[in-house]
Computed example of a mutant assay.
Amino acid sequence: MSRFEIYSPEGLRADGRRWNELRHIKCGINTHSKSADGSAVVEMGASKVVCIVQGPQEPETRSRVREKATLSVSVTVAPFSTTERSKHVTNDRRLQEMSANLQNLFEEAVLTHLHPRTEIVCSLTVIAQDGGLLSCCINAMTLALIDAGLPMYEYVSACSVALFDQTPLLDPNNVEETELASVTVGIVGETDKISLLILERRLGLDRLPPALELGVEGCKVLRQVMDKEVRRHGAMRLASRAE
């Protein structure tokens, strides 16, 4: 695919978006209420992730008992998540790295000291992937942890940015991520504090600031979408109790 097919001279991307536009976002909370303490589904474009949270609960082994809650994260990819029917295994290096990044990120965001000697198990399943996989997992995990009633400092939202020459492209799809260098940005709340920064390829320092600035703005928009869904669900639960 040529570079002009990714970003045209008219300023349009292959899917019709402009450089600073997010894909269609859809999220749901408390989607698996009978089988989990917390659950959520997030769709960002054609990417879709389901997160299930169990806990806080007693650890399976005493070796995991600590003075604060232990966070365990696992990521699995459905075989039908892409058009290429490749076999995904649980010990895939990329999935292990993603699980470690998620665990490190949310160990700082969740007030684990309020639940000592317990374990929080987060299981993420990738139903469909079309770019922005890590950011989609982060947003889904945030909502699932909130649904489980776990105390957090604030929402953790994440978004990816790809770079076409000097032009940052917000929330890239799979084609854009494959062809271009990209960076995943995560922030806490509505601040400019970056809690996660992952580069998929080498990137010059002079090209990084505009990508970070656009990524932070995208994260703030996603935070508003998630907060709206949480408030909608809370109002619905409140109305059902009043009846």
Rank of each mutant, 00 (worst) to 15 (best):
I6A: 08
E10K: 13
G11L: 06
G11R: 07
K26H: 10
C27L: 10
I29S: 01
H32C: 09
S33K: 15
V41E: 09
V42F: 07
M44R: 10
G45Y: 06
G45S: 05
G45M: 05
S47R: 04
V49N: 03
V49P: 06
V53E: 05
Q54H: 14
Q54Y: 11
P56C: 00
P56D: 08
P56K: 03
Q57D: 11
Q57P: 07
P59Y: 02
E60V: 13
E60S: 14
R62L: 15
S63E: 15
V65W: 09
K68P: 05
A69E: 03
L71Q: 01
V75D: 06
T76M: 10
V77Y: 02
A78G: 02
F80S: 09
S81V: 00
T82V: 03
T82P: 00
T83E: 15
T83C: 13
E84K: 07
R85F: 06
R85N: 11
S86L: 13
T90W: 12
T90I: 15
D92I: 00
Q96Y: 06
S99V: 04
N104L: 10
L105I: 01
F106K: 02
F106G: 04
E119S: 14
E119I: 06
I120Q: 06
C122D: 08
A128V: 09
D130N: 14
G131D: 00
L133S: 10
L134S: 05
C136K: 01
C137T: 00
N139R: 01
N139P: 04
A140G: 05
P151F: 03
P151Y: 05
M152S: 05
M152C: 07
Y155V: 12
Y155D: 00
A158D: 02
F164K: 07
D171T: 03
N173D: 14
N173H: 08
E177G: 00
E177A: 02
T178K: 09
T178G: 13
T178N: 10
L180F: 07
S182Y: 06
V183F: 03
T184R: 02
V185N: 01
I187V: 09
V188S: 15
T191Q: 08
D192P: 05
L199Q: 14
E200S: 15
L203M: 15
G204C: 13
G204F: 14
E213A: 13
G215A: 01
G215P: 01
E217A: 14
E217G: 07
C219N: 08
K220Q: 05
K220F: 05
L222I: 11
R231S: 11
R232A: 06
R232I: 03
G234D: 10
L238P: 02
A239S: 09
S240K: 14
S240T: 12
A242L: 14
